[in-house]
Amino acid sequence: MGWLLLLLFLSLGAVLETLHGFKVGFYLDPAHRVRREMWTLAHAHGTLLALVQIAFACGVQRFAWRSPGRLRLASFLLLDAAVLLPGGFFLGGIGHAEGDPSYGVLLVPVGATLLLVAVALIVLEAWRSSRPTPEAGHPSASKESKR
């Protein structure tokens, strides 16, 4: 999915470059400054979050996930964020007012919240995996294993 998103948002970048190349008014006119800013943010966030997806997929085996449920949730939420954040920015640039994006931008804080939760889950798991295993006599690990 990460590669697919990377393809999608890199393509968006190419489209934006094309709009620049042909000096397309609805993207470059000063009156559409918000659109230009929103779509640039959509491209940047989408590409970055796609890379995060790929990095997550590569690194997932390195963590000693003690809860497969949390792993799945983190994966779901990262994916949601990778769609909602750039999607919100993109929609915010359609039908915008002069100084404000349109309603679509409301998806951005939703995506950002989910991203924060996902990253918090990963950080938590990374922290826990860095601690000694139950075999090494760590009390919390033995408690977890008893469950």
Partner: peptide
């Protein structure tokens, strides 16, 4: 979006 998030949480 909220329904999807809810379903994902339940699945996970």
């Amino acid at each position: 979006v909220l329904v999807i998030v809810l379903v994902q949480c339940v699945r996970a």
